[in-house]
Design a binder for these strands. Structure first.
Lengths: 243, 243
DNA sequence: TTTTAAAAGTGTTAAATATACACTAAGTAT
DNA sequence: ATACTTAGTGTATATTTAACACTTTTAAAA
């Protein structure tokens, strides 16, 4: 399959681990074959080029599958990065040369963000070192990936305010405390437990299950799931606009 | 300046004329030089290719300027269109050939939407026929431009709910009724005048001027303007999220 | 100059929602 | 049995939404 040299996708994979928001990073190393010294070792987001005839959504899924084995992950296009100089750092050029790419080509990258619960996946070795990093511990990334990550966070926070996607960061069955903690963590704030529950109790698409939390050494919590079907049926167009 | 063959921008220019929302379309005709018959005559959005070293925002502004003479228009990137078959309609291919483009190349288009008050601009002849069309009277457009228009509308409606951008569709000084009508028109709904005014009276960035409407044959309304500065200072992070 | 037409501008009540705040219940571990 | 830990719940007040109709101001017409 032929690769499109000027088109790539980058996926900002957010993984929530019941405590904090993480992002999936891939190690990038360049060693000098002569004397075996490493002269580039850092991390990037998950991303790669798109095939010539391949829709970008498909490419994003394929790239995630190849790097991590993940399948059927929540994915959303959020912004496109096309700065003519986005790959012009000398380190990035070296890297591009090492993998046989033209370092001077303008490459457009379509940014996606993905959401998942880290406990729902296991990171298998697929040929590249891949790891979760808490978003406030991410250092300098390769390419323009710090910028892409920042924009993904903005997009995530915006989307999450008005669409029920917090669930995507939790296992299928979750407790109300877990749900509250996701929102507290992403918006770096605290909510009152009673008020939060009063609010979500109006959302009929939050379905209480006949099941309780297990394996905890305290009162086990009621488990809930999210019903997209009920959500779509009961969603009301809120005119809570600001002018 | 060298053109990037695989990258274009398309601008969905929304113009509000105090009554309805319009979109700016450009005529596209192809005539057979032999017998002078027209075998393609339709409309497209405003768009074109990006230069090799040109940032896309700059390209969008340049293209708008070239087609219409507009300058300093509110512009926002909303989505990127990259379907491998987005230009594969035979008509589109003919057209591409006629302007010396490779009809088989996969072209990525970054979509922007622009907002303005039609009365703030005049459509000059810049070499192509360009006209305003009410959005519910737009027929079949060239390329994938109906799709791009639909997505632009979705993006506009979403953005407008939570950011104060309705002003961009009005002249600098406007009345509260005009403001209300913009929102009614874009969301195809009706608001109660008193409730609308009660709501916007809380928005301190809506500044009443020492000026009234002129040239109307009835009680002239108070004029207002929008202060982005006040907005930024008084904006409160609303946790009016839905879960 | 009076009348008419047209849109501007304004207030009240009831229902829903937001906010602030603290204790009891239910389970596990010792 | 006791201690520990998190789940789960209610009330009072303030704010916001929603529904609803009349008076005022101006320019134009008579």
């Amino acid at each position: 399959m032929e690769i499109n040299e000027c088109l790539s996708v980058d996926c900002v994979v957010f993984g929530y681990d019941s405590e904090k928001l993480n992002v999936l990073l891939v190690k990038r190393t360049l060693t000098d074959k002569e004397n075996n010294s490493t002269f580039l070792s850092d991390y990037t987001l998950t991303g790669n080029h798109v095939f010539e005839k391949e829709p970008v959504e498909e490419a994003a899924n394929r790239i995630l599958l190849n790097l991590t084995g993940f399948k059927d992950i929540y994915l959303e296009q959020f912004k496109t990065f096309s700065d003519p100089n986005r790959l012009s750092d000398p380190h990035d050029k070296e890297w591009l040369i090492s993998i046989d790419r033209n370092p001077d080509l303008r490459v457009i990258s379509i940014g996606f963000f993905a959401l998942l619960a880290t406990q729902d996946v296991t990171l298998k070795w697929m040929g590249r070192e891949v790891k979760w990093v808490p978003i406030d511990e991410v250092g300098k990334l390769g390419f323009d990936h710090n910028h892409i990550l920042d924009e993904a966070l903005v997009a995530l926070r915006n989307k999450m305010k008005h669409e029920p996607i917090g669930f995507e960061l939790l296992p299928e069955k979750f407790t109300l405390t877990q749900l509250q903690t996701v929102y507290e963590c992403i918006y770096d704030t605290q909510f009152d437990k009673r008020n939060f529950r009063k609010k979500v109790s109006r959302m009929t698409y939050l379905i209480p299950l006949n099941e309780k939390q297990t394996g905890v050494s305290h009162k086990p919590a009621q488990l809930y799931m999210f019903s997209r079907e009920v959500f779509e049926k009961t969603r009301r167009e809120l005119f809570d606009f600001i002018v």
